[in-house]
Design a binder for these strands. Structure first.
Lengths: 196, 196
DNA sequence: ATATTTTTCTTGATCAATCAATCAACAAAA
DNA sequence: TTTTGTTGATTGATTGATCAAGAAAAATAT
């Protein structure tokens, strides 16, 4: 079923077009005509490469996930201390590649759609789990277990919360203040709960 | 244009049905047939009362907003100190009426849709602004202005972030831990930044 | 009270538009 | 010449919206 010889360039172009379309519209309720048009091809070709619309959307989400995972792994290698690892997770979440309005709107749309689609939910669960375990293992080396769990949940929620604000293009102006607020939280938490 | 003599009971039933349908599906992509069916009436009747689907959805969001506003105002009257007011805002956000999976999913769906619809965006802006000013005015009495602004942003983001987790029915199990984490943040912030 | 008219409420049937998906045909490359 | 890539045209299904007509209720008259 998976066509192996197909030119990956078209797949990539269609995925980028999907992100563009979803980002512009703000939801997954985009037409194949819109996506194909942005990629400069016919809708028939999109179906040729992805079969059904759902598969194109799933591939799009998988791409976002892979992109984030790649950047995260790369940056984490340069982080030595647990404290640095936390900052890296935060910084990557708000880096230009991940925090552009288009990408953020696409993430949010997938969050919503994941409630319906088991495939998307499974993909999203991977992301949530990875984010959580990265944060938790770092925090666990800096404070008691229970506090570490709280802190990891809080930072994850803060990241998601700022993503929503960003998608609404309201309230929070730039990524810097988001990072500053989260870092401030981490510092405060460390100041009160840190292991001696 | 607005029919004055109409029975408000049908409007209310249709709005409740809309919340139910949106909550079940997880997005605003619900059919009039679904909504009308849940209300036990025909689609034609839904159009009779609301004109277009968009207006029904806008009315639904307005209802959620009014509900939240009502509960918030009532509870805030019983809060004397700024610290209590902060706790009240948090508590109301995670109260049974506001934090049920259905309602949360509906909120999230509206967040997403607000990117497209100016009407919905205007409604949401009211909510965001009210939440922000409630938090900010309370924090401003407890710490320097700049810290207060950060804290208000952070608490608002935490609330939104936990809402997303709840909508995904993943990670965070119950409202109590969400409240505990936010309260812990507020306490930590006060411990380090409070006015003498 | 009872009959009537008028207004309000409700629906089934239907329309028009949108859209995912298919397919036969054609071009390009291998 | 076989495989791969590409499209225009078409189809079938979904769905928001409309409309004429029928119930039900309310108002008015007898």
């Amino acid at each position: 079923m998976p066509k192996l010889g197909m030119q990956p360039i078209r797949r990539r172009a269609l995925i980028d077009a999907a992100i563009s379309a979803i980002g512009a519209r703000g939801s997954l309720d985009v037409t194949m005509t819109d996506i194909a048009g942005r990629a400069g091809v016919s809708t028939a070709l999109a179906h040729h490469y992805f079969g059904a619309k759902d598969e194109l959307l799933a591939a799009t989400m998988w791409h976002l996930l892979a992109d984030l995972g790649l950047e995260l792994r790369r940056k984490l290698q340069a982080a030595d201390s647990p404290r640095e690892r936390i900052s890296t997770v935060v910084a990557v979440s708000f880096s230009v590649g991940q925090f552009s309005p288009e990408v953020v709107a696409t993430w949010l749309a997938f969050y919503v759609e994941a409630q319906r689609s088991p495939t998307l939910r499974r993909l999203l669960r991977i992301y949530v789990h990875r984010m959580r375990s990265n944060l938790l293992s770092a925090f666990a080396r800096l404070m008691p277990r229970q506090d570490a769990e709280q802190a990891a949940e809080a930072v994850a929620a803060l990241i998601d919360g700022f993503y929503i604000r960003r998608a609404l293009r309201d309230g929070l102006p730039n990524p810097f203040s988001a990072v500053a607020i989260i870092e401030d939280y981490v510092d405060a938490k460390l100041a009160t709960k840190a292991l001696s």
